[in-house]
Amino acid sequence: MFSQDEDDNQRAALGVVFAVVLLVIASVMGFGAYKTLAKPAAPAGVVAVASEVVVADGASIRVEAGVVTFYFATGKADLATGAKEALADIMAAVASGKRAAISGFHDATGDAALNAELAKQRALTVRDAMFALGATEAVVELRKPEQTQASGTNAEARRVEVIILP
């Protein structure tokens, strides 16, 4: 009879251990699912926040720390899908009376004058997108195109940045 009580106690303890293990696993999985579902979905072509961005040779957009960065394909001035959504915070600031600055950048490959002109065209494309969203010339400042290598890649250098001026 003594051994049957021990067996019953061991089974009960084992049942409690399994229940605790299952509870921990379910909690971890539930928390992971919550974190995944709680993140707002970025519009197509927009990377919401990233510490390191790998830009392919194509149009894309990154929004980080109040700066909207538009990347462009080689020789092109076409905006990536999602420009309107990416500019939402900038447009809200402009609507509240602040000004925005648009800076064009280009890589160092090819003819410098042609690159500067392409960077200007890209900046004008972004400006026109802002005008289409309701901005006026009074609140948008275009800055002279600059040559840059960004973090070392030409694809990252082909960009236009939009910031809110202090």
Rank of each mutant, 00 (worst) to 15 (best):
M1L: 12
F2Q: 05
F2E: 02
S3W: 06
S3C: 09
D5Y: 12
N9Q: 09
N9K: 15
N9W: 11
Q10K: 06
L14E: 10
L14F: 04
L14W: 09
G15D: 06
V17Q: 11
V20L: 07
V20K: 14
L22V: 12
I25F: 15
A26I: 10
V28C: 09
M29V: 03
G30R: 10
G30N: 09
F31Y: 09
G32L: 11
G32S: 14
A33T: 06
L37I: 03
L37G: 02
A38Q: 06
A38Y: 09
A38M: 08
P40F: 15
A41Y: 11
V49T: 02
V49Y: 10
A50Q: 09
E52L: 10
V53P: 05
V54Y: 07
V55L: 10
A56N: 07
A56H: 03
D57T: 13
G58T: 14
A59W: 04
S60W: 00
S60T: 11
I61Y: 15
V63D: 03
V63W: 02
E64Q: 08
E64P: 02
V67Y: 14
V68F: 11
V68Q: 09
F72M: 08
G75I: 14
L79V: 11
A80N: 12
G82V: 12
A83M: 01
E85W: 05
L87C: 03
A88V: 04
D89I: 07
V94W: 00
V94C: 01
V94T: 06
A95E: 15
G97F: 15
K98S: 06
A100P: 00
A101S: 09
A101P: 00
I102W: 06
S103R: 01
G104C: 04
G104K: 02
G104E: 01
F105M: 03
H106T: 08
H106I: 15
D107Q: 14
A108V: 11
A108M: 10
D111S: 13
D111Y: 15
L114V: 05
L114M: 09
A116S: 09
L118W: 06
L118E: 01
A119T: 01
R122K: 03
A123W: 01
T125F: 00
A129L: 07
F131E: 12
F131S: 11
A135F: 02
A135C: 02
A135K: 04
E137L: 14
E137T: 10
A138Y: 00
V140C: 02
L142K: 05
R143F: 07
P145Y: 03
P145K: 07
E146T: 01
Q147V: 14
Q147A: 15
T148V: 14
T148D: 10
T148N: 05
Q149S: 15
A150E: 14
A150F: 13
S151R: 01
T153H: 14
E156W: 03
A157W: 14
R159W: 08
V162T: 13
I163A: 13
I164T: 12
P166Q: 13
